[in-house]
Lab assay of single mutants.
Amino acid sequence: MASQGTKRSYEQMETDGERQNATEIRASVGKMIGGIGRFYIQMCTELKLSDYEGRLIQNSLTIERMVLSAFDERRNKYLEEHPSAGKDPKKTGGPIYRRVNGKWMRELILYDKEEIRRIWRQANNGDDATAGLTHMMIWHSNLNDATYQRTRALVRTGMDPRMCSLMQGSTLPRRSGAAGAAVKGVGTMVMELVRMIKRGINDRNFWRGENGRKTRIAYERMCNILKGKFQTAAQKAMMDQVRESRNPGNAEFEDLTFLARSALILRGSVAHKSCLPACVYGPAVASGYDFEREGYSLVGIDPFRLLQNSQVYSLIRPNENPAHKSQLVWMACHSAAFEDLRVLSFIKGTKVLPRGKLSTRGVQIASNENMETMESSTLELRSRYWAIRTRSGGNTNQQRASAGQISIQPTFSVQRNLPFDRTTIMAAFNGNTEGRTSDMRTEIIRMMESARPEDVSFQGRGVFELSDEKAASPIVPSFDMSNEGSYFFGDNAEEYDN
C-alpha cells in the first residue's frame, strides 16, 4: 500500500469516517454492505422474486439502478423543472426478469421514488447511507470498465484509444464523492478537466460571474484530485501550473494530454476495490451473516471469500459463452479491467482472455432483445487465490505491452514486471518541450526514458491461498515475461453508450 500519510484510507472515504482504527473501519464497511443486503432482500420480497430470480444479476442491476435514481437529487430536480413526455419524475423502474413456464419473461416495473427511498433508509437504520449508494455506483463503473473500451470518449477529448488503461471510473457520476474520486484513473480526471476547458473556450461566460466562481472551485478541486494521483514531483508541479492558470485554454489542454500520456509509464495511484452486485450481499445477509459484527474490507480476502460461497446467475444470449460472461463479471467484481492478464489468470486459476476474444456482450439486456431465446446460467466467480488490492500504480518500471492497449494499471499487489510499449508511448511525445512547463516536461520525458521494462514492481508481494486469511504465506508467482498482458488488445469491444 502506498503510505497513507495525511490521506484517509478508502474504507474511511467509503464510510465518510473520520480517523478510525482498522477494526472500526471493518465494522463501518460491514455496516454499509449489510445495509445493501437488507435493502436487496426487501426489494425481492416487494417484487415477489423467487430465490433464483433474486440471484439473477440482471435483476440486481435494475434494483441497484432504481435506488441510485431515487437518490439522484440533481436529476430529480431537473426532471421536475423540465417535464418530458412519458417520463414521470417521481417514478423509477426498469426490467425485471421472471421464469414463467420454463421461459424467461421481461416485466417492466415502476415504483415511486419516495417508496424506494423509504425501503433503502429502513434497511440502513434510517440513514441515507450515501456510502452504500456510492458502492453500487463503483460496481456499475467497474462493470462498464470491463465491458467497454471507451474509444470515442478518448478520441473526443484528444487522447489515444490505446490509453484505455487510464480510464478507470470514466462512467462514474460526478456525485460519487471521495470514494469515487479515489477509483478514477488519470485519464478519467484528464477527460473531465478537458471537457471543462473546452467549454470555457467555447463559452465566454463559463468562468464568469457567480456560476463561474463555482465552476472555478470545481476545476481547482479536480486538479488537486489529479495532482494527488501522480507520484513524481515534476508531474505534480505541472498540475500546479494547470490549476493556477488564470484562464484555462489550449496550453492547459496540451499540458493535460501530455500528463495523461506520461501516466502510461509514470503511473498514478488509483484505488481498486472489489464492489459486488447487491444480489451477492442480499443472500449472505439472508443466511444470517452479520457483516457489521464480522467486519468487512473491500481490499482484502473478504470479497473473494464471499464470491467463493455465492451463487449468481445471468441471462445468456443464444451465441454467448457462459464462461466468457463469467470472466467479464469476475473482472468487474475485482475492479480488474486494466490489470495484467498474466496476473489475473494466476489468481483466477483459469486463463483470462483479452476482451476481443470473449464471445459475450454486456450483462444488460436491451429492451428490444428477444426473450424467447434467452437461457440462463451460473456465473463462475470463484478464484484459485486471493491478493491484496493496490492503491498505487506500482513502481515506475515497465515491460512490453500489446498493440491495442499500451500499458496497464495494476489492481493487485503482486510481484511482476509491468508491461508497456515504450516505443509507441515515446513516439507520441513530439519533443515539444517549450513553453512555461518546459523544464517539467524535459524531466518527465527523462524519467520515462530511463524506466526499464525488466524491473520488478511490488517486490516480494504474492497471492494467498483462500485458507490464508491473515495473509501469512505469500506465494510469489513467476510470469512468462514475453507473454501478452493487455485486456483490450487489438480490440473490438462495443462502445459504451450512456
Rank of each mutant, 00 (worst) to 15 (best):
G249A: 12
M136T: 12
S377Y: 14
R19P: 13
E254Q: 12
T423M: 00
D455W: 05
S376R: 05
E380C: 15
R106N: 09
S69P: 07
M43A: 13
I116T: 08
G435D: 03
A263P: 10
H324I: 02
S377E: 02
W386C: 11
R55C: 10
A493N: 04
S438E: 01
R246F: 05
T6K: 00
G177M: 07
I201G: 01
S402Q: 09
V242P: 00
V363L: 12
K184R: 15
R162L: 11
E443K: 09
G212I: 07
A2Q: 00
R355W: 05
A451I: 05
G356I: 06
S9Y: 05
S457R: 03
Y10N: 08
K325G: 03
R305F: 09
K91N: 11
K90D: 00
K229I: 11
E46D: 12
L328C: 14
G282A: 15
Q398L: 03
P277W: 10
R267C: 08
R199N: 12
R204Q: 12
K77S: 02
D497L: 15
D302N: 14
N417Y: 13
L381W: 04
R174G: 08
L68M: 05
W207N: 03
G35S: 07
Q327S: 13
L61N: 14
L68Q: 12
E469P: 02
Y496A: 04
A181C: 10
G86S: 11
E375Q: 15
S478P: 11
N142C: 08
P173R: 12
E114A: 08
E443W: 05
S310W: 03
R75W: 10
R19W: 06
G228M: 04
S69A: 15
A181Q: 14
T423C: 00
M105L: 08
Y219Q: 04
R156C: 11
P173D: 04
E11D: 13
M66P: 04
I33F: 10
F489G: 02
R355G: 10
M105N: 02
L381I: 10
V155C: 08
K91W: 04
N498C: 04
L172N: 04
N76C: 01
M239D: 03
G132R: 09
N125Y: 08
P303Q: 13
N321F: 05
L110V: 15
